[in-house]
């Protein structure tokens, strides 16, 4: 029993209590679990046959979704990259600046995209632009934090070398850190892009346009076969982005 300490027992109790309380809150019931069969029934009865004639229209909508997700996250990356240097302990301008920027990033990140979306749909009007802004803002917060952590973990050797050749602080940091963290920056970026595709679907449901809006329209008008077609396209889209990210990352490393 050499691996086990008394403290583990305490953790076990805390964990059990947490599981029990969560199950209660979520109204988890074994009886309902057996009704999962109904879900399968529902899918079988309504999702078939897929309506392929909707394909051209839905592909067009998927371009909207793709555009929103790409531009939203890419613009976020462009802003987050310099900001992350100000939000990293080893490269920030001052302690005050570091804390201010870190907490602003946390603040932006703590607001879910759907909340931003609900606000922008009202203020900017219905359509993809509201979704774009929601995705952009949230991802500045997420990418800013993730990249600033990469900056903090970067090997200090090259930075010291840049200092010793007499380079200015900023130039030294840019050259010594960005090449080191670049593959990880891209991998974070592609993950966020993939997440943004799913988010833009949800934002579509509240009026942000694209595939999500079509999906919601079909659902509300009980056109389940049309909805199934949209789901197939969504799956294809996510897989496509995943594969693309893999290829780019491989080329970069």
């Amino acid at each position: 029993m050499i691996w086990f300490r008394k403290r583990l027992l305490v953790y076990l109790i805390i964990l059990s209590v947490a599981i029990f309380l969560s199950a209660k809150q979520a109204e988890f019931s074994l009886i309902s679990l057996f009704q999962l069969n109904n879900t399968w029934d529902f899918i079988q009865r309504n999702f078939w046959p897929i309506r392929w004639e909707l394909l051209p229209y839905l592909l067009e909508q998927s371009l909207v979704t793709l555009g929103v997700a790409f531009l939203g996250t890419f613009a976020a990356l462009v802003i987050a990259l310099p900001v992350s240097f100000l939000a990293a302990a080893n490269t920030s301008v001052s302690k005050f600046g570091y804390f201010t920027i870190r907490s602003s990033l946390s603040l932006v990140r703590s607001i879910p995209e759907i909340v931003f979306g609900l606000v922008f749909v009202v203020s900017l009007g219905l359509g993809p632009f509201a979704a774009l802004m929601a995705i952009f803002l949230h991802n500045v917060g997420v990418l800013g934090k993730l990249i600033s952590e990469l900056v903090e973990a970067a090997d200090s050797g090259p930075q010291e070398a840049m200092k010793s050749v007499g380079s200015s602080r900023r130039i030294g940091q840019i050259f010594a850190i960005i090449p080191q963290i670049w593959p990880n920056v891209l991998s974070h970026y592609f993950y966020r892009f993939e997440v943004a595709i799913r988010t833009s679907l949800v934002l579509g449901m509240i009026g942000g346009g694209g595939l999500g809006q079509s999906l919601m329209n079909y659902y509300n008008s009980l056109a389940y076969e049309s909805m199934a077609t949209a789901i197939v396209i969504i799956m294809g889209l996510v897989i496509l982005v995943d594969v693309m990210g893999g290829i780019v990352r491989k080329r970069v490393i």
Binding site: G157, M162, K163, G166, S168, P179
Partner: peptide, 28 residues
Amino acid sequence: RTEVGMIFQHFNLIPRLSVKQNVLTGRF
């Protein structure tokens, strides 16, 4: 510092850059 060159135990080169690009950073 521009008048004092320095070499390091772990070389401290800049990864992902070429040999020549690394040498040119000495001019920074």
